[in-house]
């Protein structure tokens, strides 16, 4: 998560970080989690799972802010987030 401008209370800001858990073999490869992850944490794997679908894989695991949108949207109950701790938000350079 990045801020577009530097907030005055940046040193007090904390961002919850999540860890993504993917149940590969329950996934049906719909891609909802990949499309709607606000932080671009996931992408569809090139490899197949047991059912012949392409499940998601984590590419930017440290970016997860534990919004749980993937967990709520997943129609196959095959992705969920656990809390990993809190981090410090970054400020965009541009």
């Amino acid at each position: 998560m990045k801020f577009w401008r530097k907030p005055l209370d940046l040193d007090e800001q904390k961002v919850v970080r999540g860890e993504v858990h993917i149940l590969r073999d329950r996934c049906k490869g719909c891609g909802f989690c990949v499309e709607y992850c606000p932080e671009g944490v996931l992408k569809l794997d090139h490899a197949y799972n047991k059912k012949g679908y392409h499940p998601p894989v984590v590419i930017e695991g440290k970016e997860c802010v534990m919004c749980r949108l993937c967990e709520l949207l997943c129609p196959d109950f095959s992705i969920f987030i656990t809390e990993r701790g809190t981090g410090v938000p970054e400020v965009r350079d541009d």
Partner: peptide, 20 residues
Amino acid sequence: IPHIWCPTCGLGTVVTAFIE
């Protein structure tokens, strides 16, 4: 589980929303 609903069906989402 796994349920019978097709890939990209929205019904699993509705079940999650109902339970939540």
